[in-house]
Amino acid sequence: MTLVEPLSATEKTADFSQSPRLPLDQAGPVFAEPWHAQAFAMAVSLHAAGIFSWADWTAALSEEIASATETDGEPALIADTASTDWNDQYFRHWLTALETLAAQRGLADRDQITAVADAWRAAHLRTPHGEPVTLV
């Protein structure tokens, strides 16, 4: 997917492959999947539109990450969950925080989002491969 251009040849690669606890990638994918970028851009864009302050946003994201940590146990244990993709994990929290704020601000509630997500899933399933997927 999208990659950040490596900073320079002098950027060293630390030997983190040996570390089970601190996975790292040097100038690696910022967004591993398109929806990561989409979720990121929506938060920045809603803030720019004055829907919420950035402090409100970071508070919501912090709360989401903190509660996930509480549920999942000590931080290191998250490495033991099925997803070892930190970026994905992080953007799942990001998206959940965004859904929370969207609901609080009356923009969209979770049921609505679920309904539209289901509609998109159905749209994929009825669209022959290679054709554009649309809701209607």
Binding site: F91, L95, I113, A117, L125
Partner: peptide, 17 residues
């Protein structure tokens, strides 16, 4: 060929939002 593989759940929710 009869359908398009749907993306992951969070991807669908991001799309829905």
């Amino acid at each position: 060929p009869d359908h398009t593989e749907p993306p992951s759940d969070p991807a669908l929710r991001a799309k829905a939002l």
